[in-house]
Structures are given as structure tokens and as C-alpha cells.
Amino acid sequence: METLNNSGIENPAPKIRTMAEMAAEGKKPEILFWVGCAGSFDERAQRITRDICKILNHVGISFAVLGTEESCTGDPAKRAGNEFLFQMQAMTNIQVLDAYEVKKIVTGCPHCFNTIKNEYPGLGGNYEVIHHSQLIQQLIDEGKLKAEGGESFKGKKITYHDPCYLGRGNNVYEAPRKALEVLDADLVELKRCKSNGLCCGAGGAQMFKEPEKGNKDINIERMSDILESKATVVAAACPFCMTMLRDGVKHSEKEQEIQVLDIAEITVRANRL
């Protein structure tokens, strides 16, 4: 299904430009795509990153990334209590962003989104920040993005897992659902959804440590909601949720039946971008 190009990457995106390259040509993009650490290094999340680029290219938005100049927003350090490290990261990132006179940012991760949008302004970094699900919603609302010409999700049972830092953290519940509504699929909600959504277990820096002693892992608890929904596609909007949900599916031995896909991946597939 996937085509391979010379670089050996499964879903190649057209050449991605960096802020540095554009600045060298005296140009400024409309929007900066903040990729995030997971989107940069995690193999599964890299595919989502490339799909977000495809969507941006498809609708003709001029964008750039920071490339090697990007660094962790400091989110996991802050949640774990290391405010020093967080502010070091934040202030360094703000210097870079301000040097390129960045005004608008789209992120591929709810954690980066929350941190830059809510916590950077207090340290002098003021930008208009949106999450990629909000971008997709805007494009659908503007009629620039549909669900046609690609894989049909018609009648498929699809559910959506709310990431904490997008949902409860920032009250973004509708944008990702909007991206799924255009699919003409059989959308089902999980038992615990929207403001009642159950965490995947990765937040608060749990991603980087072993869970404390308990009787089960949180993503396994979340799997019970997914199995109960009978969905065959679980839509995610966060690279950490993606990891946890895939582990949950694997643990339940449902890899053949249940796919976990990011909102951006579903959009790209539905449009064969």
C-alpha cells in the first residue's frame, strides 16, 4: 500500500523547508509547524509529522519547521516538577522563535500546544498557537479540505480518544471530532469521553518512568472502554496517547482488529494525499 522512495521513508513528504532556509532567502512562512520531540524522533509519530506536512502542502499553506533548531518545550520537565529546566527550555525556545519573528504556530502534539500557548506568554513568548486538529477543522470549515478521493471510512466504526491536554486542559473537544464527522463513518463515543475522558497514562511525565505500584496499567484500563465501543479505528490526536493506545491494543492482542490512527493520518488517507 505504502510507496517507498529512495530515502527509504514510507510516506515521503515533499521537501520540508526550515525557518533558517527561508530566512536566508528573505522569506517568512505563514505558519511555523512545531513538530515536537515525539514527532521528530518516535518512528510512529514521524509518520504523523509527515502527514501533517502533506496536509499543509495540499492546501497550499506556506509553512516551515525549525528543524535542528527546535528543542523540547520543557513540558515533561515542568509536569515532573523541574521548573528550572522548563524555564531554561522555554526561554531558549522563545529566543529562537522571536528571532524568526514567528507569529503563528501549529503543533503536532497537545503537550507542546498547551505549553507554548499557555505557559510561554508569561515568559515573554506570545504566539497564536493551534493544534493540528484545529487546523484540520478550520480547513474543513473553509471547504479547503474534504474527505474524497482516498480510502473510504464509510460505515466504519471509529472512536476518538480525548488527549487530556487538548480536552480538559484546553477545552478542545469539537475540532478533532469535526475531522471525523466528514468521513461518513459510524462514529461512536467511548464510555469515558470529552470532559470525562480517561487519561492514556502517559501524562505528567509518566511516559518517562515506570508506573507506580498498582493493579493494572492505565492504558489497559482505557482498552476496556475501546473494546466496549467495538470500534475498529481509534482516532488519536497526541503522539503519547498513540504509544499508550497501541501498547494497549497489542496487550489485548487486537492488532488485527483495531487500528490506532492520528486525526492527521485519517485525513491524509481519506484524501489520498
Binding site: 527509504g8 520540508i16 521528530s40 524522533f41 528543524g67 527546535e70 528543542s71 531554561m88 527550555q89 518517562f208
Partner: peptide, 30 residues
């Protein structure tokens, strides 16, 4: 494990032990 993560963020700009020089490899631009 969290101290490791802090060290990675501080030295590599990411919570994992990856080189910051590889941060843009996802694009396959080379």
C-alpha cells in the same frame, strides 16, 4: 528515570537519548 529524562532534555533537547543533530531526519531531506 525522571532524572534521566531531565538530563536528556538538558543535553539533547528531547526527553530521549537522541542526538539533536538527528532531529530533522524525519523529513528525509538529505
Amino acid at each position: 528515570s525522571l532524572n534521566n529524562m531531565f538530563g536528556n532534555v538538558e543535553n539533547n533537547g528531547a526527553p530521549w537519548k537522541y542526538s539533536p543533530a538527528d532531529r530533522f531526519n524525519w523529513a528525509g531531506n538529505e
